[in-house]
Amino acid sequence: MTMLELQDVRLSIRRKRILNGVNLTIEQPEVVGIIGQNGSGKTTLLRAACGLARCNGGRLTVLGTQVSTGGRIPQGIGVVFDPPALIADLTGLQNLITISKIRNEMSRADCERLLIKIGLDPGEKRRVSKYSQGMKKRLGIAIAVMESPRIVFMDEPTNGLDPEGIVSLRSWIAELKASGACVVVVGHYLQEMRIVCDRIFTMADGTLQAASENQTGSL
């Protein structure tokens, strides 16, 4: 089964065309990078792939669920939002427990183990509103990967992470790929993408193009 398939996907926000015929197919576990300038539509593309924004045209299929037409939410996906979508007045552990109670797939002990793995202290008493940017990002990553999703979308995952966190992120991405998941990473830095991604695309004028081999720097 194709994991992710976008065929001529179009989407407008307030009459402004953001996605203008995007095509992309992912058939096997791999890491795909998408780079582009601010406002080029990378985040909107992720949002559409999650079923959180309705496309105006084209065909978007995620794990066998056609997302584009009905605006349905595909099952088995995880998303790292930027900035991370967290409950500010709960602790990190309480954030994970709240989410885990929806599907009941993880116990409190599982949540604590995941926090330790991601580099956070499960016994931390501070509310998330008091967390640093990097801690929030780590918690956002934990929420995205907590129920073993088959596709993980990451919107600028290195934002706010310290060098140690970036190195850890690379190993988490590799781990996800090894477990059979597909990871779509959106960001600005081509150098960083080259380290973790199997394929890299550039988003420009609402379309995706394969990044050239001699392209360098950041966008």
């Binding site: 959180l52 995880g78 998303v79 979508a85 129920e147």
Partner: peptide
């Protein structure tokens, strides 16, 4: 407002 609706919706549907 904070976007926390999104990770919830991904698990429940809109």
């Amino acid at each position: 407002a904070t976007g926390f609706a999104m990770p919830m919706m991904l698990r429940t549907g809109v």
